[in-house]
Simulated assay, not measured.
Amino acid sequence: MPNEMKGQYSQFGGAIREMAIEILKDWRNSIGDAAITILDQILDGKNEDERKTFIEAQFKSTYQDRPFYYPDNNAKRSKEVFQSRIVSETFATHFEIIKNIPDDSHSEALPKAALVLSILAIDRAFRLSHNGIPPGDFSSYQRAKNSGTIIHQLFEKDENGRGRVSAQLWSRIIAAAKAYVKPQYY
């Protein structure tokens, strides 16, 4: 915060809060738009029956084990969970947005919220494509708000205190997503 603003939050707080809300809304909508775009690319060339069959297959499981989490929808590739094209490309949107932020300003925490949002955005993209509903504002999607807690649990520690997603798996998930981030040119 600039020195001239210190101690004056009450005067500037509303404007800062509104700006933060707008930035978060843009971030969420960008991830939602990416999921829709990538799904459209994946479905391109499929006829109506193939599209319907593919989309319906994505919902024949729980949030804990959706087929789209895995490359080629193959859950037997469990070491590659959350590294499918649609997850990686959608998650890459987060890294694309933050790539201009200096490294020393990045949070040390794993980007769980961004991955959860990516998964929820993909889920919504499948539902929109299946039902023919226009995308609208991802930030106001109530189903995502309600399901967020369920998805977050995928990344919490289990009853033994171990993370369900190991540090090595996180590294692979992040690397898979960053492979889709456009290089920064100076």
Rank of each mutant, 00 (worst) to 15 (best):
F54V: 05
T93P: 02
D158M: 05
D40G: 13
A179I: 00
E156L: 10
R172V: 03
M19V: 10
Q153R: 14
L169H: 15
D40Q: 11
Q41E: 15
A121H: 07
P111E: 03
F126Q: 03
T37W: 01
D65W: 00
D123F: 08
F95N: 02
G13A: 14
E56K: 14
G148F: 00
Q142W: 08
H130R: 15
A114V: 06
R124S: 01
K52R: 15
K182H: 09
N3R: 09
E22Y: 11
Q64F: 11
E50W: 01
A15I: 13
A15D: 13
S118R: 05
F126Y: 15
N146S: 13
P102G: 07
L120H: 02
K76G: 09
P2Q: 08
S10I: 10
K76W: 00
W170E: 04
E48M: 07
T62L: 07
A179G: 02
A125E: 04
G7T: 02
A20W: 06
R85K: 11
V165H: 11
I98T: 12
S139Q: 06
F54I: 07
F91T: 02
T62P: 04
E22I: 05
H152P: 00
A75Y: 06
M1W: 01
G13F: 06
Q8Y: 10
E56R: 12
M5W: 10
N29T: 04
N3C: 04
K145G: 15
A144W: 01
E4S: 11
I16K: 03
I98E: 10
I38T: 13
F82G: 03
Q8W: 03
D158E: 06
F91G: 02
N74Q: 01
L128F: 06
L117G: 07
P2N: 10
K145P: 00
N74R: 01
Q142F: 09
M19H: 10
I174E: 07
A113G: 13
Q64C: 01
L154T: 05
A75D: 06
K112V: 15
Q8A: 02
A167Q: 13
R85M: 09
Q83E: 14
Q8T: 07
N146W: 04
T53Y: 02
F12E: 01
L110E: 12
I21L: 15
E48K: 08
D65R: 11
A121P: 04
I38M: 03
T62N: 13
K99A: 09
A57Q: 13
Q41L: 10
V87C: 01
E108H: 12
I101K: 08
R17L: 12
E156M: 10
L120R: 04
N47M: 01
D104Y: 14
S61H: 14
S118W: 00
I119A: 08
Y63M: 08
I150T: 15
I122P: 06
